[in-house]
Structure formats: structure tokens, C-alpha cells
Design a protein around this nucleic acid. Structure first.
Lengths: 330, 330
DNA sequence: GTGAAAGCGCTAACAC
DNA sequence: GTGTTAGCGCTTTCAC
């Protein structure tokens, strides 16, 4: 079923059919009706590929995530998918955590592969080289999430505020020695670690940074014993998975949470309220970030510059994994 | 940069350039070299959209999942994405859990929207009407995952075996009254429920089916109290999230797991080994399912019929949430 | 408001 | 082996 078939059946030219599907108002209601009935008698619907070629844009967006199996990525992806669809765009997704890929910087390769087939690209916290990213930005409109790069529009969840709130929370509970469990060397980790250290200094609490650890449950398991050895009474983990690993390991060792050790996570993924005790954590507006990122990208596509980074506030959610510091730490 | 620019610079025709990028062996190594150097001097790379239109196929695959935020979906998506990429396909993803969508059967709408832009479609456990699915299968090559539909190739994870193993496991531990916590009315739930009931009957243990519950942590929380009221000493949940909800609620009520109640989950998502006690669960080969589904689809695209369903075995993973039945249930 | 014609960038016969 | 010629299905001037 091509546009010509419909044209023939409706007794009009192909151009008119095209108009009906592109700018309906530019056509008499009568011819429009004729075309439309012909179209759905023939079950015709415009061929998106041909349309893309003729128009010079695809109606597609692309998203590359580091690892879809990580809850954080999945939630962002879901939000991006919905928002894209709502605005009439289809979504390409690439997961750059491919073991079969040569190099670690596979995200950029996926991105380039998609570039010609999308109108714009969303990159989730890419660990890629600055220059690679800039080169990519020259080829295709780009928005990055959780990555700060001059001249590339971004949505940031500056978890620094959250880290500050977490430290203040623990300080208020009487904790005087705190540990931060570092994750991978990315934007988020740097922001959190820096805010942690700074706030501890401000409040006069002893601060120790442990790690880096894998940002996973097992990373947290490993970290737990180090924290115990260190003697801190409160710990801020890079993310919820790590925090859950700490909590799990502590349970195995019979160390009560929060009575002996308070644990704070990051992200507020669904996991946080699924473990016992439920995790105090810094909530990141992941879904909102996905939404906003698409919005930013669409602005760029429409020519509205809207450059710069938009920051989405994080929020400390207090649950059951934090409590008063133990009386004495011998 | 079009093919013509390259042709001009290399002093050959457009057709030759096309050949170099499509069937390089059909061209002299000398001209090939000339073309290739011209191409990357011009940073030329074939335009996929134009190529799609001319060839009549897109090099894209599509995947629709019910809810990316569910670990199960994310893991399958990741595997699909990798396998697709490895075989040179890009991947469209749609999440059909869109609240802004009119009807629940939004998966099919997403699917139709993608149909013209992909060579084939993967549907993850769609709850859609049989006829809608068949209609879709007429329009585009289709493979379904966790859905049994005559004439549509499928990959199934027949969790029935897993349910049987779970019941036998609990029976061996001395349990004589078991509950199944039902989930949504889909292929998986039916298979599990039926196997549960049948196996209980065979072994002479009392079986009660509770629910349906939402397939979530809160669903499990709600279920926990019903199980306790029922008096079963072992419970098989629809999935790990539900099982985790049960475990969590039981912890809150001070009911020891597994001493008072043994809990078995389904899927073996990462959550299963992140809660305390670590969950005994039926492992579903989700990643493998994604891989195999792509393989099936590619077979169809290549003309190898390979119809029918492939079944991937489930496996009971015994961890710490199951133990001997309590001595007496008064 | 509608039609004719050119062309988006590439591929696929078919000649040479 | 390589070039020529038609398209793939749609959009978009430019006339009328």
C-alpha cells in the first residue's frame, strides 16, 4: 500500500494524500474525507522510512544506558520511553555494557551507530572521554544525564544536597565518625564524596572515605567489614545496592542496624524499601530526569536553544536504617 | 556527504561505492581501496534510512516490554539489546505500561507503531488479546516471550518444572500445607499455579491458592497476613518481589523465616540474594531467553522457518528462606 | 486547494 | 568489475 494507491482510489494526486497526512488543514474537508476513507479502506499508513528520507528527519530518539539491569537505568529508560512516545517519537535503546565489545567506551560507538537514524540522542551518565562526547555532539543533537560537560545540555541530579542532608541527619543522631563508600569515578560519585567530606568538616565529625567499591550488592558486602574495622558508626553508601550489601553483611555478622551502625543509601530505587530494615536513602528523581532530558532534547530539535544544565533536587528519605549513635564506641 | 561525493572523489560511479559498502568482495581491491580512502577522507558512512528504503529492510528490531522498571523486563531487554547489536541490528524499545495510554492493550499499539520501521518484533509476555496478536503477526515477523500462541514462534520459560521442584523441596522439608500466591492472569501464572496444585495433590499436601495479588512487594506484604491466617507453613510466591514482600512483612510481625514459614520466590532476580534471609527461588533464564528470542526472530527473517516454541528450563535455587517445617501447627 | 515533477540517498538489475 | 538507469515511498517547490 503506497501513497499512490490511495491517491488513485480517492481520485486525487499523491501530493494531496501526502498533505492529508502531513498538514491536513491545507486541504478541503471534502477531499480530506475522501482520502481518509480511501486510506483506511486500503489500510494505508504512511511509511516512516520513506518519510524520513524525504523530510530529512526521522521522528526517532536514541538512548544509551550503561547497564539496563541497574534499576536506575531502567527507571530512566521507562520515563524516557513514555515521554518520547507522548511526543510522537520512537526510541532506540542501546546498552553499552556489552562484554563482547572491544573497549569500555562502547557507549560512544553505539551512539555513533544510532546517530544517523535519530533526530537526537540521550546519554545516561556516560563515563566516556570528554572529547569523544564533544565529537559526538557535533554529529547529532545531544543531551546528557548525570554528566557535566560544557556546551552540552544536561540534566543533573546534584546529589550533593542529598549528601549534605544525610550527613546532617547522622550528625543530629549523634554520630561522630562517618564513612563514605565510594563508587566509580563519575560525576555522581565525585559530587557525593565532596559534599560528604565538606559537610563532615563543617560539622566537626570525623570522615573517612573507603573504596572505591563496585556499585553493587557484593561491593557493599565487601565494604561492610571494612566499615566495621574502621569503627565508624554511620555510613553513606554510593548507592542503594551497596547500602543493601552492607545491611545484608551486617545481618549475617549479627551486627544490628541501626543500633550499632546506621546506613544511608543513594537513589531510592525500589530495593530501598524492600530490605529490612527499610533503607534511609537520598531519593533521586530518576523518572523526572528522563522526562526532562527528553524535553530538553526536543527544545534543541525545535531550535529553542535552552542550553545549559537543569538541576533536579535530591531529597533525603528517612526510614529505618538510621538511628541514634551507639552510646560508646570503645 | 552522500555516496555521490565519494564516487566523485574516488573517480568511480555511485554504484561502485555502494558495492564497496554492501558487497566489498564484488569489487577490485584497488578500487575498493580508492573508494575507502575517499570515504573516510570525507567521513562518509552510508545513510541507514536511504539504505532501508532502497533495500526494503531496515536492520532494526523492536522490543515491547510491559514495564521496564520490573527487573525481569530489564534483564531480558539487556540481553536482547546485546544480541541484536552483535548481529548488526539496532533496537527499538517501547514500554507499554504507559498510564497516559487509553487502553491497557497499549502494547499492540506500540507494536504497530514500530512495525513499519523494523524487520521484526519481540513481545515480552504480552497480556494482549490473541486475535490482536495474530493480526500483528500478519503485519510483521513476530516472536513472543512467555506467551503461548499457536503459529507464533515463542520462547517459553515453563516455570512448571520449577514449581514442581519447589513443592517437592518443601514437601521434603516436612511441609504439609502450602500456599501459592497468585499473580496476574498470564501464561506464567497459569503454568505455576497449575503445577503447584497438581504436585501438591500428587504428594498429598494440602494446597491453597491465595490472591491474585499485584506482582509487587506490596502485593507480597498484603499476602503475608493472609498466609499466616491460613496456617500454611510454606508459600510459593508468583515472583521474587512478592516473596520479598512476604519476607519483609513477616520480619515486621516478628515471624521468623524460615523457622515459622518457608518462602519460595520465582525468577531469581537480583533482589532474591539481596534480602535477608536470601531467597530460595526458581531461577528463570531471562537473559538466555532474550538471546534465544532474537535468534528465533533472525531465523524467521532469514527464511529459516524454525517455527514452534523453544522451552528454556527453570531451576530451583535453594537458599536461606526455606527450612524444615515447624514441629507442630496448633 | 490541487497537481506535476524533482529529488531525499541508496540499491539492484541490466548492460558493457 | 564497473557504469547506467530506474526506482524504494514520500515530501515539496512551483505552477495553475
Amino acid at each position: 500500500m503506497t501513497i499512490r494507491d490511495v491517491a488513485a482510489r480517492a481520485g486525487v494526486s499523491a501530493a494531496t494524500v501526502s498533505r492529508v497526512f502531513s498538514r491536513p488543514e491545507s486541504v478541503t474537508v471534502e477531499t480530506r474525507r475522501r482520502v481518509l476513507t480511501a486510506a483506511d479502506a486500503l489500510r494505508y499508513t504512511p511509511h516512516p522510512v520513506a518519510r524520513s528520507l524525504a523530510r530529512g528527519n526521522t521522528g526517532n530518539l536514541g538512548l544509551v544506558v550503561p547497564d539496563m539491569a541497574v534499576a536506575f537505568c531502567a527507571v530512566v529508560t521507562k520515563a524516557v520511553s513514555h515521554r518520547a512516545r507522548r511526543d510522537g517519537y520512537a526510541l532506540f535503546v542501546a546498552d553499552s555494557d556489552d562484554p563482547s565489545a572491544r573497549l569500555a567506551s562502547d557507549g560512544v560507538r553505539s551512539a555513533h551507530a544510532m546517530a544517523k537514524q535519530v533526530d537526537g540522542l540521550l546519554l545516561l551518565s556516560p563515563t566516556t572521554d570528554d572529547d569523544d562526547l564533544r565529537a559526538l555532539a557535533d554529529v547529532v543533537p545531544l543531551v546528557v544525564i548525570n554528566r557535566d560537560l560544557a556546551d552540552v545540555p544536561a540534566v543533573l541530579m546534584p546529589s550533593a544536597d542529598g549528601a549534605v542532608a544525610a550527613v546532617e541527619h547522622l550528625h543530629a543522631l549523634g554520630h561522630r565518625r562517618l564513612a563514605y563508600l565510594a563508587g566509580p569515578a563519575n560525576y555522581s560519585n565525585r559530587a557525593r564524596c565532596e559534599a560528604f567530606t565538606r559537610t563532615c568538616a563543617r560539622l566537626g565529625v570525623a570522615a573517612v572515605v573507603l573504596g572505591p567499591f563496585e556499585p553493587t550488592f557484593s561491593g557493599g558486602v565487601r565494604a561492610a567489614d571494612l566499615v566495621l574495622a574502621d569503627g565508624a558508626s554511620g555510613v553513606l553508601a554510593y548507592n542503594d545496592d551497596v547500602a543493601a550489601g552492607v545491611v545484608g553483611r551486617l545481618a549475617d555478622r549479627g551486627v544490628p542496624v541501626p543500633d550499632r551502625l546506621s546506613v544511608v543509601g543513594f537513589d531510592d530505587t525500589s530495593l530501598a524499601s524492600m530490605i529490612t530494615p527499610r533503607l534511609t536513602t537520598v531519593r533521586l528523581p530518576m523518572a523526572q530526569a528522563g522526562e526532562v532530558a527528553v524535553g530538553l532534547l526536543l527544545d534543541v530539535l525545535r531550535g529553542t536553544p535552552a542550553r545549559g544544565a537543569v538541576e533536579l533536587p535530591a531529597e533525603l528519605i528517612v526510614r529505618a536504617s538510621t538511628g541514634p549513635a551507639p552510646e560508646v564506641t570503645p
